[in-house]
């Protein structure tokens, strides 16, 4: 079972709580996903602070662990302040750390991210940093004390799937003991399955479910894909080969079908 900072969680899927048509639709989708952890944004979707109490109560009634995030923060100071507010509001040391570096792509500001992560770890937080696929940045985050690292598949909300498969594979092989979660950019269940097949510990997504025609059905589709991808990883995927390899003996093949035979 997946454990995050010592806490066992029942599912390898985490889902966001933004962009749903209504809290009722969100609740149906979250239940269908089987996710044990939901992320909530203190700044982007809600007004911040206690003003979102009614919405928080709905989320807390779902009986899932809450991972508050710092979405919308652009500086180290903003992110650290928002994290402190989240800890007070939700009574959890968990914080998904996001520091936006570019408004257009919502690409993380990885320099500020590492700095904020170090401050928050020192302050007793259990940090889930949202980062790019960059190996060096991931190394710095782990050095700063992060036991979970969350690289993107592609930019937030893009639905493009895994843009840099090789880099994600490298992260997995270089950090066998760090919990790695693919976060952002997953548009289809096949993208989530691919991340799990690469050996990632979990995936985090939001838009692909929230904006689907039928969010609950899409949540279930992702849950099945995540489970399938994880099973495949554990079962041991066959290594791909660059030529066709027949699964039956070729001994009985008529000579006119054999490679190189003249037509």
């Amino acid at each position: 079972m997946l454990t995050l900072y010592g806490q066992a969680v029942p599912s390898r899927m985490m889902v966001g709580t933004a962009l749903y048509p209504s809290p009722a639709v969100m609740e149906a989708a979250l239940r269908a996903s089987g996710a044990g952890i939901v992320t909530v944004s203190l700044r982007r979707e809600a007004g911040g602070g206690r003003a979102g109490d009614a919405f928080w109560r709905i989320i807390q009634s779902l009986g899932v662990a809450v991972l508050p995030n710092t979405a919308g923060c652009r500086t180290v100071k903003e992110a650290v302040t928002t994290a402190a507010l989240a800890r007070e509001l939700f009574g959890t040391p968990w914080i998904k750390l996001e520091v936006v570096g570019d408004d257009e792509t919502l690409q993380p500001d990885v320099v500020a991210l590492v700095e904020a992560a170090a401050i928050l770890v020192r302050d007793g937080f259990e940090v889930f940093p949202y980062t790019t696929e960059d190996l060096t940045v991931a190394t710095r985050l782990v050095e700063a004390g992060c036991r979970v690292v969350m690289p993107w598949a592609s930019p937030i909300g893009s639905g493009q799937g895994i843009a840099n498969r090789a880099a994600l594979r490298t992260l997995r092989s270089r950090f066998p003991d760090v919990t790695l979660v693919v976060d952002a950019g997953l548009g289809a269940p096949s993208h989530a399955a691919e991340a799990m097949e690469l050996g990632f510990d979990a995936v985090l997504l939001n838009t692909a479910i929230a904006k689907a025609d039928d969010p609950a059905a899409m949540a279930r589709a992702f849950a099945l894909a995540v489970e399938g991808g994880r099973l495949a990883y554990e079962a041991g995927l066959m290594p791909p080969r660059d030529f066709a390899s027949p699964s039956t003996p070729v001994v009985g093949t008529p000579f006119w079908h054999a490679a190189g035979a003249a037509g």
Partner: peptide, 11 residues
Amino acid sequence: SLESDDLSGVS
């Protein structure tokens, strides 16, 4: 559309 019952003004 913000999940908030804060009437303090427009951000």
